[in-house]
Design a protein around this nucleic acid. Structure first.
Length: 558
RNA sequence: GGGCCGAUAGCUCAGUCUGGGAGAGCGUCCGGCUUUUAACCGGACGGUCGGGGGUUCGAAUCCCUCUCGGCCCGCCA
């Protein structure tokens, strides 16, 4: 720790031109600034290490991204202030497989049921560390743990957050954890400290779990640690996993301290000291469990200051808790296909202390909210003071590049454009609505059209009011004579070269002339073009389509 | 049983740290866009800020208490 670091803090107050004048120096509109202050108050060595981590127990879902994105914002704020930062993520992959998941994901993010893999093989590996359980999908990774850690890493890349992954198993096997393991086992206090926090722990426990060399199962039944030889005696007597009992093979003997692991309550602080962690976000589940004990273990056993903690609320998916085991999950990959990285980051930028709902059926709301946030930043709209201040401060962290000339199609409008595949149609319609003009750069058009693809997937996934698809072939239909005559009339009107607005008006006129109820006539139109009874505003939509196609379809010729 | 967090409009939430005007978006309703057909625009309606008590000139905000919900004291983002 150098003596001038205090000055660094003074020289980089983290104020940019967007910071509203008159705000107190120690009040921040953005939570990550407050966290950064707290970290810097401790004069950390550089690079400042920001960590997160999970067990690679199954499909990585959006909730796991709290572990990456909370840290991301803090890391970005610290970088802005001129500090070197490394964001690391521990895969807690020496934990034992405790339950066979109902659903899995392939390396290409395809969600499959247990039936698609050898579930029996997984069942036989209950109690075995994730890195020693074979990859259920065969050869794509070295192990179950590597497979799902790979997906997590993949998610981080998708969203554009640079993270260094650390495997717990590798930390044990390479010896990097040796000092931490020795410290715990040599400590007179370790077991008794934990016993103060955990009812099931006693002061006589040897805080280590050995991996049986015969069957690969972890066992807490260890004794007589020898710190000179770095071995421990074990008996493979099985372990508890939830309500189930996992049997051991009964083998006994001694194993190296690299063949096993610390219990989680010790492993977490061991990660902090070994990796030099300065900041760690965690869910409210750890807030009253692992954190208080970990904090004291760090101080009394490792004689090190624990990282700055940060508790985040869990969020729900469509009002229900996320649950890997029941399959109520949404992956980052899926979310990225629906809204893109900036909006995902925006979702995590908001108040982390309050439970949020991620509602796929109302993603348009989330995207609208993001668009507004963006307009507030660019000063294109007035809004509440606090929110505007937050936008000024944090918006640039959401995007790769701040571009005032970007184009954002409203999400539901993008969904309407998604009803037709043709790019020219999409561009023309966006142009007619004033979203694109002659000065719009090509990159902005491309980026805007990406949202059309996403909104299209959303419409399909939720099968909502925008899930209409222009039919390439003439749908099956049955119209009475009056309707047929009216459609022919309308076809002539279109053939005469009238525009969308005129066509919309003519729909009413034609229906009236032929004595067809307006509603029925619209239904006929929706049947012909969408094979449905409803759809978007018909006339203006038809006005954008190729005239010959519309005429032919209205005449039921193809 | 003990503890942590939360509760603001029909919905999603901001505002609570640092007490002074109860807000946004969406939805709903009404109207506009040449005449119902989920894209656009305008307006309106809408809240005893979970209940009660206290501190204060003044409380969504601070304190106490109760109710409900989530979570922790095995594992979990």
């Amino acid at each position: 720790m150098s003596s001038h670091e205090m000055d660094d803090g003074e020289l980089t107050p983290g104020v940019d031109d967007h910071e509203p004048t008159g705000s107190d120096a120690d009040h921040h509109v953005f939570w990550a600034d407050a966290v950064a202050d707290e970290i810097l108050d401790r004069d950390p060595d550089e690079p400042i290490v920001i960590k997160g981590g999970v067990s690679p127990s199954g499909i990585p879902h959006l909730g796991h991204f709290n572990e990456i994105l909370r840290g991301f914002f803090v890391a970005e704020v610290l970088r802005e202030r001129g500090h070197a930062v490394e964001q690391v993520f521990t895969s807690d992959d020496r934990d034992a497989l405790r339950a066979v998941p109902r659903n899995l994901a392939t390396e290409d993010w395809e969600i499959v049921g247990l039936g698609a893999v050898d579930g029996g093989a997984l069942g036989r590996n209950l109690g075995v560390p994730y890195t020693d359980v074979p990859d259920p999908f065969g050869e794509c990774h070295d192990s179950y743990g590597a497979h799902f850690a790979g997906l997590l890493q993949d998610s981080a890349e998708l969203i554009g957050v640079p993270v260094t992954f650390e495997s717990n198993t590798a930390l044990y096997e390479s010896g990097r954890f040796d000092d931490a393991v020795d410290t715990v086992l040599a400590s007179d206090d370790a077991a008794s400290v934990l016993a103060d926090y955990q009812a099931s722990a006693t002061a006589d426990d040897v805080p280590f779990m050995a991996q049986c060399p015969e069957c690969g199962h972890l066992t807490p039944d260890v004794s007589e640690p020898d710190l000179d030889e770095r071995t421990v005696a074990f008996a493979c007597t099985g372990m508890e996993a939830g309500d189930d009992e996992i049997d051991g093979c009964g083998a006994e003997g001694r194993v190296s301290l690299r063949e096993g692991k610390l219990p989680w309550r010790f492993e977490w602080p061991a990660q902090w000291t070994t990796l030099g962690v300065d900041f760690e976000p965690f869910g409210k589940d750890h807030a009253e469990g692992s954190w208080p004990s970990g904090e004291e273990i760090a101080r009394t056993v490792f004689e090190a200051e624990p990282p700055v903690p940060f508790v985040y609320e869990w969020f729900t998916l469509g009002g229900e808790p996320l649950s890997s085991s029941s399959g109520h999950v949404i992956t980052v990959s899926e979310v990225m296909e629906l809204v893109g990285p900036a909006v995902v980051k925006y979702f995590f930028l908001r108040n982390p202390g309050r439970a949020k709902d991620f509602d796929v059926s109302r993603l348009d709301q989330l995207v609208d909210e993001f668009d507004r946030f963006e307009r507030l930043y660019f000063g294109e709209e007035d809004g509440p003071e606090e929110l505007t201040a937050l936008a000024d401060r944090a918006y640039p962290l959401l995007v790769d590049e701040v571009r005032p000339d970007r184009v954002r199609l409203p999400y539901t409008f993008a969904a309407v454009l998604g009803m037709v595949e043709d790019r020219g149609f999409r561009v023309q319609m966006a142009r007619d609505e004033g979203h694109i003009d002659d000065d719009t750069p090509e990159w902005a058009i491309d980026a805007a059209l990406e949202r059309v693809e996403r909104a299209r997937r959303w419409a399909e996934r939720t099968d909502n009011a925008y899930n209409y698809r222009l039919q390439r072939d003439l749908p099956t239909h049955e119209f009475d004579a009056a309707t047929r005559a009216a459609l022919d009339d309308l076809a002539d009107f279109v053939a005469a070269g009238n525009d969308g607005e005129a066509i919309q008006g003519e729909v009413y006129e034609t229906a009236k002339r032929h004595d067809v109820p307006v509603g029925e006539f619209f239904e006929a139109g929706y049947r012909l073009f969408f094979d449905d009874t409803q759809g978007p505003r018909l006339g203006e939509f038809l006005g954008e389509l190729e005239q010959a196609f519309v005429v032919e379809r209205l005449r039921r010729d193809g």
